[in-house]
């Protein structure tokens, strides 16, 4: 059962819309019944209950985050305990450490490496189990996906394939190395909405 109401109001999720697959996340959230809006400027973070940082090119999104001075506002959003979900590039941007790169906002205690499975011809689809849902397997789409190289003791592992962590959470932060927004299956978005309701 998906929860879309918090404090008697419809939950509103913001999707960082600087570059990448932000429209797909908005569609998924709306399909779950909650509201979703594009976030193009830092001041808009005040108007939302949870934030999704989508897939795209992490170098591009990182440069635009810097250019538009998002960091202090994102830090405040994170510290206030509101829920944040990063998919693929979004995970890279909020990880504590990124191999060979100087970005990583540090909201989840993992080290990641970009494009870790190879180039586009090595992108793959795989049926995975969801740690929070004993139901059917979830078809996960991995596109030039990152790997989580290591995770701190406070990180909850929600799914793995071949010892690679692919879905994890810590406190108010959820991350996946794959793209649930490219699927019709909204179970992970529903899980995130439940995180928002509890946050």
């Amino acid at each position: 059962m998906v929860v879309i109401i918090k404090n008697k109001e419809l939950i509103r999720v913001g999707v960082l819309a600087l570059q990448g697959a932000f429209r797909e996340h908005i569609n998924c959230i709306k399909k779950c019944g909650a509201d979703a809006v594009e976030i193009k400027f830092p001041y808009q973070l005040k108007e939302i209950d949870g934030l999704i940082i989508p897939g795209g090119e992490s170098t591009t999104i990182n440069k635009l985050i810097k250019k538009y001075d998002f960091k202090p506002y994102l830090d405040e959003f994170y510290k206030s305990g509101k829920a944040i979900y990063g998919t693929c590039a979004g995970l890279i941007l909020i990880a504590k450490k990124v191999a060979n790169e100087d970005f990583g906002l540090g909201y989840i205690d993992v080290e990641v490496a970009r494009n870790s499975y190879g180039r586009q011809i090595d992108s793959f689809e795989e049926y995975i189990s969801l740690g929070f849902n004993g139901g059917e397997k979830f078809k996960a789409i991995f596109i030039r996906a990152p790997k989580i190289l290591s995770a701190g003791p406070d990180v909850d592992i929600l799914s793995e394939i071949k010892d690679n962590i692919i879905l994890a959470s810590q406190g108010n932060v959820l991350v996946s190395t794959f793209h649930p927004e490219l699927q019709d299956d909204t179970r992970i978005h529903e899980y995130f909405l439940n995180m928002i309701e509890k946050s």
């Binding site: 819309a17 600087l18 570059q19 990448g20 697959a21 932000f22 429209r23 797909e24 897939g55 795209g56 090119e57 591009t60 693929c88 590039a89 586009q120 011809i121 090595d122 992108s123 793959f124 689809e125 795989e126 789409i141 596109i143 030039r144 793209h179 490219l182």
Partner: peptide
């Protein structure tokens, strides 16, 4: 595990959206 599917091909283009 499947590779080279249409979903993966179109998926990369989805990730490039809003970009140059």
């Amino acid at each position: 595990m499947e590779k080279g599917t249409l979903k993966l091909k179109t998926g990369l283009a989805e990730m490039l959206k809003g970009g140059v």
